[in-house]
């Protein structure tokens, strides 16, 4: 796949844009103002991810990986440039419209799992299903908990689960709504090597069977190597776009 030619999205129809990918970023920059002046976190990032693709965003700490992930998922707004997410121009949407776009169509996996401590494993999976208004929420949640091998731990709260088990619940939660895209931020960052490897296996297995687009941030070489494509960031700038 080649990046679009012009600096602007073509003005044609959404369907034409769709063909370029489910996530498209053009001339994406993020700057913050600090006491020492303006600091560029991301500069002129160009990116297009097609449906079903897997992309690893790699780079050293502070290279802007997580910032890019946040921007692509519509969690933040860029200082410059444009993003198309699932056919919608994010710049045209306000915070609430972006939230509505995410509901049920985008899944997340986080480094620190981000399970709600008051809810059981099953309820944590149930939460996005309920938010998306799925009628079969309960059965789906139970199905996905079983898929990650934790059916026996349904009533356990995150505190009663190990790190690896918590991340498995998080994976089930991310895939339970049949999302079109799953964003994962350092999914193995808080886990030991063995557990991390098992989580990677599970992540790719689920992704393959659900035909989901997967965009993940990592500095785990093994994990990045499993992705079809890799985007390497150095100080906020794209250095390399390698194909697997």
């Amino acid at each position: 796949m080649t990046p679009p030619d012009s600096a602007q999205f073509p003005a044609e129809s959404t369907s034409a844009l769709q063909s370029h990918g489910v996530v498209i970023a053009r001339a994406l920059s993020q700057r913050v103002t600090t006491a020492d002046g303006e600091l560029a976190i991301l500069s002129e990032v160009e990116l297009a991810v097609k449906a079903g693709e897997t992309l690893a965003i790699t780079g050293a700490s502070g290279s802007g990986k997580s910032t890019l992930l946040g921007l692509l998922a519509g969690l933040d707004q860029p200082s410059a440039g444009e993003i198309m997410l699932l056919g919608q121009r994010l710049g045209d949407l306000d915070e609430d419209a972006r939230a509505r776009l995410r509901a049920g169509r985008i899944g997340f996996v986080f480094q620190s799992f981000q399970l709600l401590p008051a809810l059981s494993a099953l309820e944590n999976i149930l939460l996005p299903l309920e938010l998306a208004g799925r009628a079969d929420a309960s059965t789906r949640a139970a199905y996905w908990l079983d898929r990650v091998g934790l059916a026996a731990r349904a009533a356990h709260t995150p505190r009663q689960l190990s790190g690896g088990e918590q991340q498995r619940v998080a994976l089930a939660r991310a895939f339970a709504t049949d999302p079109e895209i799953v964003f994962a931020d350092e999914p193995t960052g808080n886990l030991d090597a063995d557990t991390g490897a098992r989580i990677i296996e599970l992540l790719f297995e689920l992704n393959a069977s659900a035909h989901t687009t997967l965009i993940l941030v990592t500095h785990d070489e093994a994990l990045a190597a499993r992705c079809q494509r890799r985007l390497h960031l150095v100080a906020g700038q794209m250095r390399e776009a390698a194909f697997a």
Binding site: A99, A103, F108, Q114, L116, L127, L131
Partner: peptide
């Protein structure tokens, strides 16, 4: 929790 719910698509 609020951030997570927003992430999952909850509006203001």
């Amino acid at each position: 929790q609020a951030a997570l719910l927003r992430c999952f698509g909850a509006t203001t």
